[in-house]
Every structure is written in C-alpha cells, then in structure tokens.
Nucleic acid binder design. Structure first.
Length: 246
DNA sequence: AGACTGATAATCT
DNA sequence: GATTATCAGTCTG
C-alpha cells in the first residue's frame, strides 16, 4: 500500500521508467514521458495530440535538445495509398511501421535526407513529425544544421528555420536511420516525448505534403495538422486558416 | 509569396 | 532503371 504510493509519487517527480529487464531509466525531473497508452491509439488522435508536446533528444555528450512539436502528418497504414505499408507491403525499410505503437521509423529519402515517424495503433500506421519549435539547445541545433549544409558558405539560420520541415528537424536533432531507427520511444534513453501544457494555438487541418504521385482520393485527405500562427510550421494553408474561427 | 529546378543515393521493381 | 513523405537556391511578379 505505502510502497505503491511511494513508488507513484517517486515516479511522478522523477519520471522514472522501469524497463523490461528490470533496470530503471531516470529522466529529467518533473516531466512526464509519453508512454504506451499515448501511442497505442488511432493514428489520427496521436497526430493531433502530439501537437504542443515536447520532443527531447539526448546527445552523446549527455546534453539535451528540446523542441515543441508544431506540425504532424498521419500515414494510416495498409489501407492508405500514400503510406509505405499500403496493401500490406513489407520490406526491410518499412518494418518499424509494423512494430509496437511508439516505435521510431526513420528512413532515408531523396538521396540526402531523413524523415522521422512514430508508429501508432493501426497496422502499418505512423505519424510523421514535420516541424518543431526549438526550446533548448538552439546553438547545437544551429551547428547540426550548418554541418549538414552542402554549400561552401556558412549560412546561419533563424530560430524558426531550424526545424521547420521533416528533414530539417532530423538534421537539427541529429536523427538518422543508423542511430535512431526502430527504437521504442517509450523506453529509449536517447530520445523521448514529454507531456506539456495544451498549446495556446488552434489546430489547422490540411492536406499532406510531397505525395503528388498518389491518386487524388488519398492525396487530398485532411491528414496534416499544425498549430495556427506558429512560425516554425513548414507550409501554411491560407484557405484552411481562413475557416478557423477561434 | 509562389513556381521551378538541381542535387544525390538508398531502396525497390 | 525508376522513384523519392525534401531542401535551398533562383527566377518571376
């Protein structure tokens, strides 16, 4: 009785997490890590509810990068024609999309870039993280972005330019398929999501980006979500924003 | 602000 | 051999 009470208080204050092997992972004090219950829900709910939450990345030197998620997209799984798992397709690359809700799916695209997703409840489904607002470790994010530049001149980015796109977010947070793919983000010590106050901004619903070759029915589905007015959003939809009243 | 284009290589067919 | 859930630069108005 008292043991359980103590354990719960302790867990709340220090956000302790017990792994399957019995060891305990200590996180930043006072912040609640998003767990299985959060990710084991329909893709749509996970995508919308991730807006405003904090993404935390722990680097090799122990330092933390933090950002507020401001834009997400749903990939609904085997029924979704724009999804890598459409029709039940299974390859070595898309395997993490079939794994436990809360598993990272980081893949390489356009010969240069990465995209970062997290699996959700439906078979083969995942939420693509498209944009975030830097909260902590901005200088390091700047260095990461500059290190990924191919032009000779060193350009510096404004705060809202550091993570305003799916591959920019990966560069800024040092997320790649070699180090971050197929990880259980409810337990992995090097990256996780944290609870945060409900965002001030309204949620805008729009169409997904970069899926031009998909047939219209699926290309035009309202499966992208972002926070109205936030400077770190990658692509705004004036038409949809005009329909928002609050 | 929006349209267009080149870069670049893993992955799949 | 074709495709790609992108980015950064350039051009146009």
């Amino acid at each position: 009785m008292f043991h359980v009470m103590f354990q719960n208080v302790f867990k709340c204050i220090f956000s302790m997490k017990r792994r399957s092997d019995g060891t305990v992972v200590a996180l930043t004090p006072g912040r609640q890590r998003l767990s299985d219950e959060f990710f084991n829900r329909p893709c749509l709910q996970v995508a919308v509810d991730l807006l405003g939450k904090t993404l935390v990345r722990k680097l090799e030197d122990g330092s933390l990068l933090r950002c507020k998620i401001v834009e997400t997209e749903c990939y609904l799984g085997v029924t979704d024609k724009a999804c890598h798992t459409f029709g039940g397709r299974r390859t070595e690359k898309n395997a993490p999309m079939y794994m436990k809700p809360g598993t990272s799916y980081v893949y390489f695209t356009y010969g240069m870039y990465h995209c970062f997703n997290i699996s959700s409840q439906e078979e083969g489904s995942a939420v693509l993280l498209r944009a975030a607002e830097p909260l902590e470790g901005e200088d390091t994010m700047q260095l990461h972005r500059q290190a990924s530049q191919r032009s000779a001149k060193e350009k510096s980015y404004k705060t809202h330019e550091l993570c305003n796109g799916p591959s920019k977010l990966c560069m800024a947070l040092a997320i790649d398929r070699f180090t971050c793919n197929a990880k259980d983000l409810t337990l992995w010590p090097e990256m996780w999501f944290e609870e945060a106050p409900k965002p001030e901004e309204s949620v805008v619903t729009s169409t997904r980006v970069g899926i031009d070759s998909v047939e219209k029915e699926w290309r035009l589905k309202p499966l992208r979500f972002y926070l109205l007015g936030n400077k770190s959003v990658s692509k705004r939809d004036k038409l949809q924003e005009g329909a928002i009243t609050s």
